[in-house]
Design a protein around this nucleic acid. Structure first.
Lengths: 244, 244
DNA sequence: CAGCATAGGACGTCCTACGTCCGACTTTCC
DNA sequence: GGAAAGTCGGACGTAGGACGTCCTATGCTG
């Protein structure tokens, strides 16, 4: 069904219309994540565009996490993810670091607002199993810190499990993205946080936070989280000062 | 055994490497938002790839909000924006609505957490000018409601200005995206919110919120916001019930 | 000096051709 | 007969050329 598109649209709008047509096709056909999509040839015929144009639109959807492409096999509706946000924020964060670092601070602020603001609600829904997992992670952290090893994964898992009780996929993804972006930025400023003293301090602050969560002291947990982020802000400030 | 240097990467990794090369080029050259980038021909020569491959990578960066393309003129580093997140979330939200609506609820939850959690901080930094703007918007809303007109823009502006005092671009963008996505979802469920009674109710709730902000009553403002989102959740629930 | 007309550069779209990868089918060999 | 190896076709990946469209800048004209 060769649809005749209004020929007079600027290029950006046209590409946008094309991606929109493809997502509409997914929605109209009721395709679910994991389902196969039409091939390039079928889409070309159906949408009335050339292969290059179509592929550019598809690549956009791939970058946005809408579709997943398997070379030599086909195209599929992707599982939920926030690759797009992650990639976008990572670039912005790195860019700002080389100039003002303002955006990196904003990211930390938003993380703090979300985590400190929601830890209370999360604690209301937390289960014994979550607490057990958190404690296990804290113990691992303390051990790794004592051995002088860093524990990036443990840190990430601690925060992930802390908010898992809320059962909000979007929130979990957002926090995960913020954590990853911060991590990337942090690596690029090459902060000296691998000293044994700093490791022990980080492990200890997680221990304190865990105890607060376990005892159900929501205000304390919230303020401990806020304090944790203040420390991060301090590191960023130090870096910016060292650049000037 | 594991090869130390995989001579070939899969297609996805190659595209990712290419986009990464381009962003690195931006960062290395210290390009700022608005600055001109090399032309397609120059990038082709510099990165050693064909035009199609390059253009696909560029379209990805455009969708991610990294670069901005002006037909017939050139390519430029884009201003900060969260188009990527917006597009991605809009699709996910629409998709979920046609099935369970779970993700739409999650979006409202995150909005509520951010707005209700941060309104207090924002109020601490609010100025007389912000208050004047807010009041002006509320007056407009009340007038529009009395005339039976909807006031989507006014609603959006109210929330935007409410959090402007925090001076956090990322937060403002996030809230804006959430608002837009919710708006898109809302339109697609065709809720009957344009009745005069509903309009008056919405205008009134904004009036109440404004008064709370003006008087500096942070707990009241926070709970009014929470209440506002409870209403939205109710609409989503009604829609899902009507589908079953 | 202002306005229009033209020329050039740069992106947009389409086409053809070939390379690469994957899954499925067929063949071959125990 | 069954399993391993080889083969085939489909689908995506990459390259390059050709032409269209759009924007800016230049220079001409009144």
């Amino acid at each position: 069904m060769t649809v005749s598109r209004p020929p007079r649209l600027d290029a950006h709008a046209r590409l946008r219309a094309l991606t929109s047509d493809i997502t509409d096709l997914i929605l109209d056909r009721g395709l679910l994540p994991g389902d196969a999509m039409p091939t390039e040839q079928e889409l070309m015929a159906e949408l009335g565009v050339g292969r290059n144009t179509l592929r550019e639109a598809i690549k956009v959807l791939q970058a946005l996490g809408v579709v997943e492409i398997r070379h030599g096999f086909g195209m599929f509706v992707a599982e939920e993810n926030l690759v797009a946000l992650s990639d976008s924020l990572t670039f912005r964060g790195q860019m700002s670091l080389r100039h003002k670092g303002h955006e990196a601070n904003e990211l930390v602020d938003v993380r703090q607002a979300l985590e400190a603001g929601l830890v209370g609600t999360a604690m209301s829904a937390i289960t014994e199993q979550h607490l057990a997992e958190l404690e296990s992670i804290v113990v691992d952290m303390e051990q790794l810190a004592a051995d002088g090893h860093s524990f990036v994964d443990a840190d990430r898992n601690f925060h992930r499990i802390l908010f898992e009780p809320l059962n909000n996929q979007l929130l979990s993804n957002l926090l995960g993205v913020f954590w990853d972006v911060y991590r990337t930025i942090h690596q690029s400023i090459d902060a000296k946080d691998s000293t044994r003293a700093h490791l022990a301090e980080t492990a200890h602050s997680h221990r304190e936070l865990f105890e607060a969560v376990k005892s159900g002291d929501k205000p304390l947990a919230s303020s401990l989280l806020a304090c944790h982020f203040d420390g991060i802000r301090g590191q960023l400030a130090d870096f910016n000062a060292s650049v000037d």
